[in-house]
Simulated scan of single mutants.
Amino acid sequence: MLNNKIKNVVLFAAVTIILVACSGSESKKEKKADEPIYKVPVEATLLEIGKITNTYKTTAILEARAESKVTNKVSGMIVDILVEEGMVVEKGDVLAEIDSENYLLELERTNIDLESAIAEFNRSKPVDGRQLVAVKDLEKLEFLVKTRRNQQKVAQIQVRDTKVRAPIAGVVAERMVKEGNMTANPGGVMFSIVALDTLQGVVYLPESEINNVHVGQQANLEFPSTAAAIPATITLISPVIDTDSGTFKVTLNVNNDDYRLKPGMFAKVSLTLDERQNTQLVPQRALLVTDTETSLYVVEDNKAKKMVVETGYEQNGLVEVLTPLDAQTPIIVVGQQSLEVGADVKIIGQDL
């Protein structure tokens, strides 16, 4: 009888322990179920539809399209200098004068010699059909007249060249002589003139872009000294590819009527090669780029979804996405680097 009572007590205690244990387990499960799910905070934006251009950027050094080294054609003392560095000159303007006294005397001598030869030739011409001198002598006199006339022209040119004139219109960049100097020999450089109204810059583009450029195409130049971009125009395209660099030469013309720009200035060149309208644009920071793929994360049902995409042009922090995207689906731009596919996310920072 006692043994039965002990068995009943032990059985009751065991059942009580089991019930307590089960009750504790259920309460823990209920507690875990009540805990909130952690959501990764991210920033996101919506797809943008707009225009994007394929812009090639390089550098160039400006140079004068026309430049001339002005030399003396006759020798002598420089008696007057009429221009200084920085002055604007037109083609044909007198820059300096060389002493012309000797050349004027030489011109006078050739004039006298020519007049004498003409007079002798005229006296020796046939009169009333009668030959006054031998035909051979008359021909010599005729040749003498031609020779004297050529000598006169040379003397006239020498007198003309005592006035040193500008061969092109432009700005006097450098003056190498002083008043009172002797120009010992013809051919000495006296002035340097550059045409500043039109400057040019030379750039070299990769072979892959040769079908994307054409004469008349516009480019923009930026300089440290100017706030706004200055337009330029492609005027020459080399038909030859350099085998060492794989590039071809392109020449840009820059209008410089106000003389703001100077030869030798360093320019940043932006050349628009192509333009696309109504294309899908996403911020560049939204993309995850590896050696094998380019991807981005979107938010669907508050979960992160990874999409592998194909991209096109890049411009000003935006990238063209060629893979179709939903315009209403948020694209994660911050926080995607550590995301796992299917992770719960919470968009912060803006209303979408």
Rank of each mutant, 00 (worst) to 15 (best):
L46D: 01
N181C: 08
V15A: 15
R260E: 09
Q131V: 15
P41Y: 08
V133S: 02
I332M: 03
M1R: 13
A33E: 06
T183M: 13
D80Y: 09
N181P: 04
S238A: 09
A327C: 12
V202A: 01
V298K: 03
V308H: 01
Y103V: 08
N122M: 13
N150D: 14
R149L: 09
I347K: 03
A286K: 01
R160A: 11
M176E: 09
V20D: 02
I49E: 10
K28E: 10
V9N: 08
A21H: 06
E310C: 12
R123M: 08
K32D: 09
V213G: 00
D137S: 13
N150I: 15
T235N: 02
E48G: 04
L221N: 01
I348T: 14
Y38L: 13
D257F: 14
S100C: 11
K125G: 07
T235C: 04
D93M: 12
N72S: 11
I230P: 01
T183F: 04
V164Q: 03
D197T: 15
R285I: 13
V177Q: 01
L141S: 06
D197I: 09
V133Y: 01
L196A: 05
N54L: 07
V321F: 02
N181Q: 08
E35P: 10
V298Q: 03
N278F: 09
A96K: 03
I193V: 11
A227T: 13
T162Y: 00
D244T: 15
T45N: 07
M265F: 07
N3E: 14
A267G: 05
V194M: 11
V83K: 06
V215E: 02
V133F: 04
V333N: 04
T272M: 08
P36D: 02
V10T: 07
I193S: 00
L46R: 07
T233G: 04
S116P: 06
R285W: 03
L325K: 05
V83N: 03
K178T: 13
V172Q: 00
D351W: 11
K163I: 09
A232Q: 01
P41I: 08
K91T: 14
F223A: 02
I347T: 06
L104C: 05
